[in-house]
Write a protein that binds this DNA or RNA. Sequence first.
DNA 1: TACAATTATAGTAACTATTATCATTATTGA
DNA 2: TCAATAATGATAATAGTTACTATAATTGTA
Lengths: 129, 129
Amino acid sequence: MATLKYSRQRESIQEFLNASCDHPTADDVYMNVRQQYPNISLGTVYRNLNLLAELGEAIKITTPNGGVHFDGRTEPHYHFCCNECGNVLDLELEQLNCINEAAGKNFDGVIESHEMLFYGTCKDCLKQN
Amino acid sequence: MATLKYSRQRESIQEFLNASCDHPTADDVYMNVRQQYPNISLGTVYRNLNLLAELGEAIKITTPNGGVHFDGRTEPHYHFCCNECGNVLDLELEQLNCINEAAGKNFDGVIESHEMLFYGTCKDCLKQN
DNA sequence: TACAATTATAGTAACTATTATCATTATTGA
DNA sequence: TCAATAATGATAATAGTTACTATAATTGTA
């Protein structure tokens, strides 16, 4: 099995992810890290974001409008996606642990986890109307 | 505003969607409807699936493994996505209506709806281990 | 039934997001 | 310092989806 080797690019990607309050896309990360490493490749950004997600050091959030967002906050929590601007935000809501069991009651299979995405209009988009 | 005109291709797509118990992808629909209309275009399938979703006569389900599935059952319900095979199945679980309100408590914005996707291993994939 | 207006289609090209390839560079342990 | 190997940048390739356009189908009206 390949052993992990340090890279400054990966470190920079992870630092940006941890420092950002919103949930950047791969392109957002690329645009930002480029300021520090001007000739970093977009492929490197994708490779490392997926690697961090596999290692459990980042969460991948897939939204229906097609965008994939990344989150450096790794403890499980829920997200909100604005119908107007598409931005993804964190939600303060306790984790519903017992719901996996409830969902498994009438289901032939094993349920291990769940993800929930709330929809509506964010604060900024409310202002603009 | 353009008025909707009947097309047999759209009818066939909708019929297949309503008759299928699983949740086909655009390509699944294409492969099936092609048996009835051998030279239907994949573009026609996409156009009509998106149209049906806009009209509220189908639900679009986006899964993290990248696949987009369609569901002819339009009343709100939850879904399960198998980590092994990627198939999407319906879940028998009452709708959590009060959760939108609970999520809105500490949130600056309006929450209108939510989607929940459960993960685990489906019956068929359990057998194979 | 015929016709005109308009929408939908098939076929294809274009596009976007992401992944694969590969020669070169960086990291690591001895 | 050096050898082994993983990571990178640049680019090509891929997959899924949408856009374009000439032709065909549908619909309302006479």
